[in-house]
Design a protein around this nucleic acid. Sequence first.
DNA 1: TGGACGCTTTGACCCATATCAATGCCGGTA
DNA 2: TACCGGCATTGATATGGGTCAAAGCGTCCA
Lengths: 248, 248
Amino acid sequence: MTFAEPAAETCAGERDCKHGRGTNGCDDCKVRLFSVCGALEPEELDELDHLSQVKNFAAKTMLFDQGALAGSVFNLTEGIVRLYKSLPDGRRQIVGFALPGDFLGLALMDRYGVAAEAVTPVRVCRFTRAAFLTYVDGKPHLLRRLHEFAGHELSLAQDQMLLLGRRNADEKVAAFLLNLQARYGRIGAKSVNVPLPMSRQDIADYLGLTIETVSRTLTKLAKEKTVVVVPDGVRLLSTDRLDQLAAA
Amino acid sequence: MTFAEPAAETCAGERDCKHGRGTNGCDDCKVRLFSVCGALEPEELDELDHLSQVKNFAAKTMLFDQGALAGSVFNLTEGIVRLYKSLPDGRRQIVGFALPGDFLGLALMDRYGVAAEAVTPVRVCRFTRAAFLTYVDGKPHLLRRLHEFAGHELSLAQDQMLLLGRRNADEKVAAFLLNLQARYGRIGAKSVNVPLPMSRQDIADYLGLTIETVSRTLTKLAKEKTVVVVPDGVRLLSTDRLDQLAAA
DNA sequence: TGGACGCTTTGACCCATATCAATGCCGGTA
DNA sequence: TACCGGCATTGATATGGGTCAAAGCGTCCA
């Protein structure tokens, strides 16, 4: 989940980059962008790098709000971000968790379609929308990559619709755990130990359940030796069983 | 809902275009494409038009299947198409209904992420993926428009996640009716009479409900004078009440 | 004209998940 | 060390929507 857009130029919880490089960006960004944009020329990477600015956000602070003017594009380099939509009465649907390497605001629309909050302390590379657009506009192949990327995002969203509309609690939780494991794997931390830095409430709001049901489902999976619940995460004992539950 | 991709070069239910223009497309396409792509030069429109081919599909036939190689991009000119994902056990989630003017396969990925079936008899303008890509590649502004469009699609998908995960049956049905009304309005048929060419099963699979619940909800709305259920559709008596239920 | 079939509606009942309410389990801090 | 506040877990109960079953109701066709 990496699609939404950035808003506030100055945010509560925002601190200076420890790199102290001001507007010059950081190497993290190069790496991450490369993975999205495919083969860029070194000078292009440099150019892009110069457009970025490192920013930090404390846990629970908002990177941008739903409907806010989309002033920035972010690349998440550290931490976890939740993206969500809310109903006026407070009901909330988390539409995705962004992990390191993910982009926020890549849709390049003029307003953010979702809100984004730091789950953990977060570091991002920020581009102003204008600069990013200017950079991108002259590069059709990049535009193409971006569009492909958008298609992929849409496909993930549709998978989540299937999950929300047609799966039961066990299947939802199993799919969530496997999905998180796979994503951690892609950023170099593949393991049966799956950290869950987000709260039960976050998981519930992502899966269309309540905290109690999430909790009960996890203890149920634990009782049948499918997972072990540990502080701040779970250990997967039987991915087979989880696969069976999540059955795509 | 206009985002997915085309597959079969020849489909059951496929018939020749009554226009009899073979690979030369039809005027409908010009109009529809214009609405998505913004101001194109007349010669560009012609060029695009020449790439298209009109095809017809009978009701209940498949335009393309989930996971099939995405060989075509379609522009729907007549009829309604359902886009869906399925679970191995047959549970189905409809992720969107395409109305005239909508595109299918615009994500331009190599495989279709969802299946597409004609709900009613359908007419489309078809472009081969290759031709469409070639056409688009030289036109950065078109690529930009396409990307914006993708962002809009994603935003709609996220709204649907909120609906599926956090709304009750009444709210789901109300939102569905208002949404359909608005979309018919955009293609020139704004009216309190909302045709429902899709079956109750389709509506249920779109809203994450069962046929029975959809039916009961509609009769409930009818009893409280919010709608009138008529053959093949509903008449909206109190959009205020529906708005209140759907409350974004 | 009358089945027969497919779809929708309605009713009765049930169950998965929500809701409400303790209780437990830290981690911070006074 | 003890208190406090914020989650998470667990238990008891309620309920919205699912499931199962039976009518309605058109439409097509023999």
